[in-house]
């Protein structure tokens, strides 16, 4: 589960949003979208917790995977300054990803730094012949990324909260305008967005959560989310992808 992966590139693709490409043989076994990598950001004692980052793209032939993260705190800022050629200590693949089913047409909804895992998901769905429509929400024009990549896979709509790019408003404002009959939705983004989708969508779907994590393997009980029966699910090992209704948001 622990692997050394070599950094092939680090690039700022939007305001403080970085794309990093890593190479390693483990990519051959990474077949499920929605799983995550848990990255040790320092070999020294200063950072005791790893950083969980979702996977935006896997290329098993080239043995590479792509992660996208926002440089926000101490750990992700360190990651954004790492050098090409450095080796990263990575735990992967972790968590349960998105189940793939043979639908006709599905809706993928992403918010901000929740967008990346939907790219690998969309690739896998399209490879199975499932049609995908993407609605991606950002705060502002400077935050938008991967529009072209999603456009190559299916119809893609961008919303920005301040209206500086795409449709002004939230992803739900755009979803209301779509006339397609979707069989299923898949979503990843901030909790408030997921809650609105969970409550408003009348079709089944899967949502992926993010939370401060400790271990990433289900032992520390840090990243829990309540279930309807009053107990807790662990986001890292029971999720991060849950079926709509399986958890309380």
């Amino acid at each position: 589960m622990k692997h050394l992966m070599r950094i092939l590139s680090v690039e700022e693709i939007a305001d403080n949003i970085f794309e990093m490409v890593l190479s390693g043989e483990i990519t051959k076994e990474m077949k499920v979208s929605g799983q995550f990598v848990h990255i040790r950001v320092s070999p020294y004692t200063e950072n005791v917790l790893r950083r969980p980052i979702s996977i935006a793209n896997v290329d098993a032939d080239k043995e590479t995977l792509t992660i996208i993260f926002r440089a926000e705190g101490d750990g992700t800022t360190k990651m954004s300054k790492m050098q090409v050629g450095d080796d990263l200590d990575v735990l992967t693949p972790l968590g349960n990803g998105y189940p793939l089913e043979d639908f006709n047409h599905v809706l993928l909804v992403g918010g901000g730094i929740g967008v990346p895992p939907l790219h690998e998901l969309s690739k896998q769905l399209n490879a199975r012949g499932v049609k995908t429509t993407h609605v991606l929400g950002f705060n502002s024009k400077k935050d938008v990324f991967y529009e072209d990549e999603f456009n190559a896979l299916g119809d893609t709509y961008i919303t920005t909260a301040d209206g500086t790019y795409g449709k002004e408003g939230f992803v739900t404002d755009q979803i209301e305008l779509l006339e397609t009959e979707f069989d299923q939705f898949y979503a990843c983004g901030p909790k408030v967005m997921l809650k609105v989708l969970n409550d408003s969508m009348d079709i089944d779907g899967y949502i992926s959560l993010e939370e401060r994590m400790g271990c990433g393997i289900g032992v520390c009980y840090a990243c829990v989310v309540p279930k309807p029966d009053g107990s807790y699910a662990k986001i890292c090992s029971d999720g991060p992808v849950f079926k709509k209704g399986e958890i309380l948001l």
């Binding site: 005791v48 917790l49 750990g75 401060r212 520390c220 990243c223 829990v224 009053g230 807790y232």
Partner: peptide, 19 residues
């Protein structure tokens, strides 16, 4: 059931937990 989240936070060369 334990405490509400967030339950952990990293600090310099350490971490806080309130599971």
């Amino acid at each position: 059931l334990g405490n509400p989240t967030p339950r952990v936070a990293e600090t310099a060369s350490g971490m806080l937990n309130a599971i």
